[in-house]
């Protein structure tokens, strides 16, 4: 409308004089100038703010990366020299005999994590099926609430619980350690499986049931395979999580210096051995502790990368 009045011829009825028109134009010009100046000033402020914030976020990202890179570099530099074939294939020997290797800890970790997986994965998957099918029943709600709480529980508390349950009055044992790890794995397995099963379209279930498949057959030969990649990703993350657990093993599996596969005796594990070696006043043990740290890191990294690969495979 303002533009219209500028191009329109002066309205004779309003008796507008030349001076009036000049006046109006001057006022408009000043207003326009002020607006331009203000917007330029605002733009300067915006540019500066943008640069500052970008710098801050970039700095924060770098700061966050520093410990990660530092740890990786340190662990590789200090750990790699000690990793020899002997180190991986021999068991514990006294420091005076060269210190031996960590085969006993590798085997112990495999047994502990393997046993924990065998215990937690079937329970977690079956419970996930129940929760997905009955989300609003009392039991379904209780399970979901329970797993949420369990997932947030400090691992040492779980260790303490298993200690009082399975160790007191008996003895430290591989079984107790595996139970502690299984309790830690359970919520991860259950929740990831639940989330993945929820993503399977209901039409698949109807399709299978419509063919006369019983409910259990539908679950295991249609729904679980359809969710398999996601479930596998969750399982690998759960295994990665407990592979590095130390606290709950301190007073359950205890640790050991002998190569053992007995479930009713104390058993070694990589994180426990790392803890013990690092606290001994002996340079050989310190070097070995770094090497163990490297092994654990590689395992966890491999599991994480594996999980990502599976997830990507699924996306394609």
């Amino acid at each position: 409308m303002a533009r219209g009045t500028m191009t329109d011829p002066p309205n004779p009825a309003a008796r507008t004089t030349e001076a009036d028109v000049a006046d109006t134009q001057a006022i408009r010009a000043r207003a326009r100038q002020r607006r331009v100046q203000a917007s330029m000033a605002r733009e300067r402020v915006r540019r500066v703010t943008n640069a500052v914030m970008l710098g801050l976020t970039g700095l924060a990202t770098l700061l966050a990366l520093i410990p990660l890179v530092w740890i990786i570099v340190d662990v590789v530099l200090l750990g790699a020299p000690s990793i020899t074939p002997d180190f991986l294939t021999q068991s514990f020997k006294p420091a005076s005999l060269g210190g031996g290797g960590v085969l006993h800890a590798i085997v112990g970790s495999l047994i502990l994590v393997g046993l924990a997986s065998v215990m937690s994965i079937p329970i977690g998957i079956l419970a996930a099926f129940y929760v997905v099918r009955n989300p609003n029943t009392t039991l379904g709600l209780a399970v979901r609430f329970g797993t949420d709480v369990l997932a947030g529980l400090p691992s040492i508390v779980v260790g303490l619980f298993v200690y009082t349950l399975l160790v007191v009055g008996r003895s430290y044992s591989a079984l107790a350690g595996a139970v502690a790890l299984a309790i830690l794995m359970l919520p991860i397995v259950l929740r990831t499986t639940e989330e993945m099963l929820k993503l399977v379209p209901d039409s698949l279930r109807e399709g299978a049931l419509g063919l006369g498949a019983p409910e259990w057959k539908t679950a295991f030969s249609v729904l679980l395979p359809a969710a398999l990649t996601g479930v596998l990703t969750g399982l690998m993350l759960a295994v990665a999580r407990v592979s590095g657990e130390t606290a709950p093993l301190l007073f359950t599996a205890l640790g050991s210096n002998v190569l053992s596969s007995a479930l009713n005796r104390p058993i070694a594990s990589l994180p426990l051995t790392l803890f013990v070696y690092a606290t001994q006043p002996d340079p050989i043990r310190h070097a070995q502790a770094w090497a163990i740290a490297l092994i654990i890191m590689v395992i966890v990294l491999a599991l994480n990368i594996g999980a990502r690969l599976i997830a990507r495979h699924r996306a394609m």
Binding site: S203, G207, A208, G210, L211, G212, A213, P214, P225, A226
Partner: peptide, 29 residues
Amino acid sequence: IRRRVGMVFQRPNPFPKSIYDNVAFGVRL
């Protein structure tokens, strides 16, 4: 009953399996 009275749904809902396994699914039951 569902084996005697089969159903085809509004949206195609093949199982995420091979073509062969889809057809064989019901028979294998």
